[in-house]
């Protein structure tokens, strides 16, 4: 396993007081807590900081950590044989164990040995997983494959990492910010406690064509000025396939044309709408004939689009 320098992670000296450790943790928590931070990598950084604090704030765990001596973060490390005394003499198998498990194991052993208050049922750990999906996957529903390493405790309170693969069905219409729950799929409960849950935090990946607002979709619809003036029938890409849209004569730039029920589906039936936003575009280069016709139009037209500016 790789050693972690918990003091360095919190930015404190090894001899720091409990208050100094708490202050350092609070400052870093304000900066990196995933509920309040917008920093890149906030979640990973907070996890590291919380892991360091969970060990250093507990005098028993801190003493056990200090016994391991000084090592650099990331240095290959194997706990000394006497570490097993923390587990009632059981010989722990350190292979495949994470550094944090050493200290989680102390808590697990205390619980299983009934050394800290009455040994009661303990709920298993919950897990949160970020699940980015595409707009098409939200439209149709999808299945995602999740690789988790859940921590389970044996009868000595010794933790072990159990790799698991979960396949979760995401219902159609799942949207940005939605949370889905897989009941009982988290860490195992202790002493009759119920198993933890897995929470899936859904986000939508940006789409090449559509912008998403709730369950409505917005699409830019490029039209030539003459299509808008004269009316046209244009093909619109929707999530269920292309549909023909009749653009009425006299359509204005910026106008939103609503295609009812062509957005993302609602959980209990129905769907959001698709809005095509009209944008006028001109050819980058005009042919001689186009130039002639536009000149003729400019001469013949009395329309003044800037009348209200005068």
């Amino acid at each position: 396993m790789k050693f972690k320098d918990y003091y360095a992670i919190l930015g404190v000296e090894r001899g720091a007081t409990a208050d100094a450790i708490k202050d350092a943790y609070r400052k870093l928590a304000r900066k990196y807590h995933p509920d309040v931070s917008r920093e890149a990598n906030a979640e990973a950084r907070f996890k590291e900081v919380a892991e360091a604090y969970a060990t250093l704030k507990d005098p028993e765990k801190r003493a056990a950590y200090d016994q391991l001596g000084r090592h650099g973060s990331g240095e290959d490390f194997r706990p000394p044989p006497e570490w097993s005394t923390h587990f009632g003499g059981a010989a722990p198998a350190f292979d495949g164990m994470d550094f944090a498990d050493l200290f989680a194991g102390l808590a697990g052993h205390r619980r299983s040995a009934g050394r800290q208050g009455p040994a009661g049922p303990m709920r298993g750990q919950d897990y949160e997983v970020a699940v980015p999906i595409t707009v098409e996957e939200s439209f149709r529903g999808t299945e995602v494959s999740l690789d988790l390493a859940t921590t389970e405790f044996d009868e000595h309170g010794m933790p072990r990492r159990v790799p698991r693969n979960l396949k979760a069905r995401i219902p159609k219409g799942a949207t940005e910010g939605q949370v889905l729950r897989l009941p009982g799929q988290g860490g195992n409960g202790l002493q009759g406690g119920r198993d933890g849950d897995v929470y899936l935090n859904i986000s939508l990946r940006p789409h090449r064509l559509y912008r998403v607002s709730g369950r409505d979709l917005y699409l830019d619809l490029p039209l030539t000025p003459w299509e808008a003036a004269l009316g046209a029938s244009v093909e619109i890409p929707t999530l269920a396939g292309a549909v023909d849209l009749k653009v009425p004569a006299g359509t204005r730039g910026g106008q939103q044309m609503r295609l009812a029920g062509r957005g993302l589906p609602m959980p209990k039936g129905g769907a959001g709408d698709l809005y095509a936003i009209v944008q006028f575009v001109m050819p980058l280069e005009l042919t001689e004939r186009e130039r002639e016709l536009l000149k003729e139009l400019a001469t013949a037209s009395t329309f003044n689009p800037r009348r209200q500016l005068a």
Binding site: R164, L166, K167, R169, P171, R181
Partner: peptide, 15 residues
């Protein structure tokens, strides 16, 4: 590694 298939509970299902 175990592999299991699960239906995610959606917000409107859970009470």
């Amino acid at each position: 590694m175990t592999s299991e298939r699960h239906e995610a509970a959606s917000p409107d299902d859970d009470r």
